[in-house]
Design a protein around this nucleic acid. Structure first.
Lengths: 335, 335
DNA sequence: TCGATTGTCGGAAACGATTGCGTAATTTAT
DNA sequence: ATAAATTACGCAATCGTTTCCGACAATCGA
């Protein structure tokens, strides 16, 4: 088996002490420039790589952070991850991604996995099914830096980044109203998600502002966030069975937009499809479905901001009590 | 700051030695059952978590593996990752995902990042742009276990898992022929990818078998694997500009299928769209586009198999020279 | 009954990198 | 010229866990 070269090896070869080599490699000011050069040259020539475990153990830090999202096969989250990575790599952090699949159990397991001192901090977007937050509260209480993005909780104070969901939802709903639709349904996400309440509020605001009465029977929740296509189809079937079918639908999430469009394709002839507007960061959904108006969240930016704030928490020498709750604007795209 | 409890703390509290505690926690046979129980109870009560860095440092293993794919926002890869995770977690391994975005530079950087002894092995699906394999060859030569899946290379011998691309491509092309199409174009992936050659072969086989002459001008490659939508649109525009437009297209990948369908939607009226068949593991593509025939790869299974073989390599006490190249069958879905 | 085996445990040295402290040699200040 | 400061480096402890050697007692076989 291959045995990687260590600091000791370099020290021996160059007749220096390991301390000097270590300091030379980290560019310490108290090492002679000449010596540094020798060490660095030797290290490069022999393909030296510092052992991250030894380093982490000694320093008590891993320079890696954990990301918990419901799933990566989702344009919003994958772009957010890209944003996270862009900042992380620039600052020398590794990113470990894990998926909850919107299931409570897996969220708990993954977070525990990540948290056991293998990461310096956590970036979390809550799972749709999670109602009990104690697994996260405990970690936070133990001093693990945590930043929430998109799907936040208010069980404790920390940095958060979200989109302006209320306004986005309002704008989307208004775009449907402007196109002349009156009977606008709302396909909502899991009820206890922060984004669900905010987007519902925006939907209600738009209706109220245009004098359209709110009809509770036009609102359907998907408790698993659309993870199970059946639940989406049941909601759509419900809409289709209504004595007066809605002529438009405002959909609350990326995943649900996918589910909604394909459910309609499956369950009803094309001329019975309502107009659809909704949150989505998909690259192609709007291209495939011409009359689909979508609200884009600034996913990449959210990832960047979240990561920056997490690094700030991690690298702060003293406990932080002044938390920021950043809200980014969404963008309406219609064709 | 919170200070986690260590083995020493437990040892002190229970008046044992750290060695005994360590052995008790790993359920060693040479520890009295009574003592084990005391240790485990104390550990659980005080919420002890073994420090993974210390453990890894000592054992020379991290119990984590790295996965390199072009992108996670892709149904095939996200399902493959699910398969990988399902096996990994069962065997006590962590999974670290990283994305190459089909770019050579990022593949090199990510693999280096992962490889520096932070992972026990690598699961790789090659980036579309990569033509130089030396960064991987070096690691392999240094003894790092590597398994390829889907997009393999033959620069050296190791375990691989692929789909039966040739047969899948043949079946897909045949399905188009069976529907009466004669002028079947092929939208191909990057030329130096293993899957590209195999699928091209299947396409050619189908044509030959049905007496249709091969027309090179009906084949277009996407050198960036469709990462840049423009290159897909150029290919489609090329097809549209042909004096005799193809009446069907066989598309070589998931990403390209997306790109192809949306490019046609953008560039041509619906009645000029050709029939499309192609590789795709998307959950919704075929629902949105009714006449889209797709070849599904057993993504989840591929992930599982790849991970099992990697674990076998990692845990083998002696160097392995007997490598397996597993080929899984694809599935045709038409509606 | 005496050596041999078995069952339990502790001591101490690793794993590789980092860092507080000490110190010799050189330079600077007075 | 001598004290003081600076430069450049080494020593050794440390992070938390694991594991190779023992070691001591109790039990066993003959």
């Amino acid at each position: 088996m291959f045995k990687p070269i260590t600091i000791k090896d370099i020290a021996q070869a160059l007749e220096l002490s390991p301390s000097t080599v270590s300091r030379a490699l980290s560019d310490s000011y108290e090492i002679n420039e000449e010596t540094k050069k020798r060490v660095i040259e030797y290290a490069e020539k022999h393909n030296y790589r510092r052992n991250p475990m030894a380093s982490s153990l000694r320093q008590g830090r891993s320079y890696s952070i954990g990301v918990v999202v419901c799933e990566v096969a989702n344009s919003f989250f994958s772009h957010a991850i890209d944003g996270i990575e862009s900042v992380a790599y620039g600052k020398g952090y590794h990113v470990i991604i894990s998926q909850s699949h919107d299931a409570y159990e897996r969220e708990v397991v993954n977070i525990q996995h990540l948290a056991n001192r293998a990461v310096d901090g956590l970036l979390i977007s809550m799972s749709a099914e999670t109602k009990d937050f104690s697994h996260i509260i405990n970690l936070h209480a133990q001093g693990l830096p945590i930043v929430f993005f998109d799907r936040v909780i208010d069980a404790f104070e920390t940095h958060t980044v979200t989109a302006n969901n209320q306004k986005g939802a309002m704008v989307a709903t208004e775009s449907l109203i402007d196109r002349g639709f009156k009977k606008i349904a709302h396909l909502a996400n899991a009820p206890h998600l922060s984004i669900t309440a905010e987007r519902l509020k925006g939907y209600e605001d738009a209706l109220k502002q245009h004098g359209i009465p709110l009809d509770e029977s036009l609102i359907r929740y998907c408790h698993h966030g659309g993870r199970i296509q059946r639940e989406v189809e049941e909601a759509i079937q419900y809409f289709l069975n209504l004595p007066e079918k809605p002529d438009a639908v405002f959909v609350a999430s990326d995943r649900l937009s996918m589910g909604c469009l394909s459910a309609y394709n499956k369950l009803a002839p094309r001329d019975e499809h309502p107009a659809v507007a909704g949150f989505s960061n998909s690259d192609v959904l709007d291209l495939l479905q011409a009359d689909f108006t979508c609200i884009r969240q600034p996913a990449f930016k959210m990832g960047q901001v979240a990561m920056e704030m997490l690094i700030q928490l991690i690298e702060s020498r003293y406990p932080v009590y002044d938390f920021q709750n950043i809200v980014l604007e969404t963008e309406l795209i219609h064709r």
